[in-house]
C-alpha cells in the first residue's frame, strides 16, 4: 500500500531538487543542470504512469496479452531529444554571457549591469546639466 505511490514521491523529490537548484544557485551552468534534473523527473513521471502490472514492452508479439501504454513512451522519446537541443541552446547563451561579462555568476552579472546603468544615468545627467 505504502509503496504504491513511491514512484510519484520520488518524482516530486527530484523535481523539487531541480527547482531548488534553479532558485538558490547563482551559477548559470548549475542552473541548467537543475533544469535537466527537473526535466528528467518529468520523464520518470510519464514513464512510470505508462507501466502496467505484468505488462511488457509495447512491441507486438504472439502470446503476449498485456502491454504497457505506448503513448507516454512516444511523448517522452521525442521530449528527450528536444530537451538536449534546447539545453544546448541554453548552454550557448551561457558561453556568450561568459564572453560578454567574464563571469557566469548571477550576482556578478547583476552588479555589472547595475554599474552600467548608474554610469549611463550619470552621463545623461551631466549632459543635461551642460545643456
Amino acid at each position: 500500500m505504502l509503496m504504491d505511490l513511491f514512484n510519484h514521491w520520488v518524482v516530486i523529490t527530484l523535481m523539487m531538487s531541480g527547482l531548488y537548484i534553479v532558485i538558490a544557485h547563482g551559477n548559470l551552468i548549475k542552473k541548467i543542470v537543475g533544469l535537466s534534473v527537473f526535466q528528467t523527473s518529468v520523464f520518470i513521471f510519464y514513464i512510470s504512469m505508462a507501466k502496467v502490472d505484468g505488462g511488457t514492452a509495447p512491441i507486438l508479439a504472439d502470446d503476449i496479452v498485456q502491454y504497457s501504454n505506448p503513448l507516454p513512451h512516444v511523448l517522452i522519446l521525442t521530449a528527450i531529444v528536444v530537451g538536449i537541443a534546447t539545453t544546448a541552446l541554453g548552454l550557448s547563451l551561457v558561453v556568450r554571457i561568459k564572453e560578454a561579462y567574464g563571469s557566469i555568476e548571477e550576482e556578478s552579472i547583476q552588479q555589472q549591469d547595475n554599474q552600467q546603468q548608474d554610469n549611463n544615468a550619470h552621463a545623461k545627467r551631466k549632459q543635461e546639466e551642460e545643456a
Partner: peptide
C-alpha cells in the same frame, strides 16, 4: 518500466 525506446534515447 518497459520503455525500451525511451531508455535507448
Amino acid at each position: 518500466m518497459d520503455a525500451v525506446d525511451v531508455a535507448f534515447t
